[in-house]
């Protein structure tokens, strides 16, 4: 009994921790121990989300950011799956370039954005291109991995049924490799969101990243905190959503 009071379920403990943290922050801010210009109390930050909705076109910016994320992911996924297929299909190319793509995946690609800025200018194409660049490596690597690991039994079954090339791809290779490809897509979506918001913030264009930049530049500290909080919540929800989608897809197979 005592242990169950001392050790409530993790989710309750987590909420209690945040409640204490916010309470301490509120108290420190109200007592003047922390300047309101550095960390305004939560009681000012949370209502500021409402202000963002009225004054800063929160919904439009949200839609714009996610529109760019999905555009980037679509382009990156299509290109990545083609390249991944090629690396699987052409064994020499696979041996020659898989390491290259693994190295690219580990490289800090977002730092290429000045190059894209000069190529495309300060507009949505730079942001989408930067998002697509982030999606490409995980999709390429996971597509190749998925196709490489299709069980030979399935391939032989296809041979027995004398499937055409297209039937072979559609009925055997795609369904068998899809879970692995989706892991790549899930990573890619999260990377795309990170890059899109980051580049928006840096070049001052687009959706939610721009909102943070504007509020920060105007020193509207409570609004800035609210915008950052909103972006963090959005990314967390997005992460949760992609994880659920992945498990759901794996179950329905």
């Amino acid at each position: 009994m005592i242990t169950s009071i001392l050790r409530p379920p993790p989710i309750i403990a987590r909420m209690a921790f945040f409640a204490v943290l916010l309470g301490a922050w509120e108290w420190a801010s109200r007592m003047g121990m922390v300047s309101r210009f550095i960390a305004p109390p939560p009681s000012e930050v949370v209502p500021a989300i409402g202000l963002l909705y009225h004054d800063n076109e929160l919904v439009t910016r949200f839609l714009r950011t996610f529109g760019q994320v999905f555009a980037a992911s679509g382009i990156g996924a299509a290109l990545g799956m083609i390249i991944g297929w090629w690396l699987h299909h052409n064994k020499n190319a696979g041996r020659a370039f898989t390491d290259w793509f693994a190295a690219i995946a580990a490289a800090p690609l977002v730092l290429l954005f000045p190059l894209f800025l000069v190529l495309f200018g300060r507009n949505a194409s730079t942001i989408i291109a930067m998002g697509a660049v982030a999606v490409l490596p995980p999709i390429i690597l996971k597509t190749k991995e998925g196709l490489d690991h299709v069980p030979p039994v399935l391939i032989n079954v296809g041979r027995t049924f004398n499937l055409t090339r297209w039937q072979h791809i559609r009925l055997i290779m795609m369904p068998a490799s899809l879970p692995t490809i989706f892991t790549g897509l899930r990573l890619g979506l999260v990377f795309a969101l990170i890059n899109v918001v980051g580049v928006e913030y840096l070049i001052g264009f687009g959706g939610m990243g721009l909102m943070i930049a504007e509020l920060g530049d105007r020193f509207e500290v409570a609004g800035m905190y609210a915008a950052i909080l909103f972006v963090v919540l959005c990314s967390a929800c997005f992460f949760w959503f992609t994880a659920r989608l992945e498990t759901w897809l794996l179950q329905t197979r």
């Binding site: 890059n195 980051g198 950052i228 992460f239």
Partner: peptide
């Protein structure tokens, strides 16, 4: 208690904390 929080925060763009 804390790992899920850290996992979710890890998936956010860190650069948005730069203004703070």
């Amino acid at each position: 208690i804390f790992e899920p929080v850290i996992e979710y925060l890890a998936a956010t763009p860190k650069v948005v904390f730069l203004p703070i």
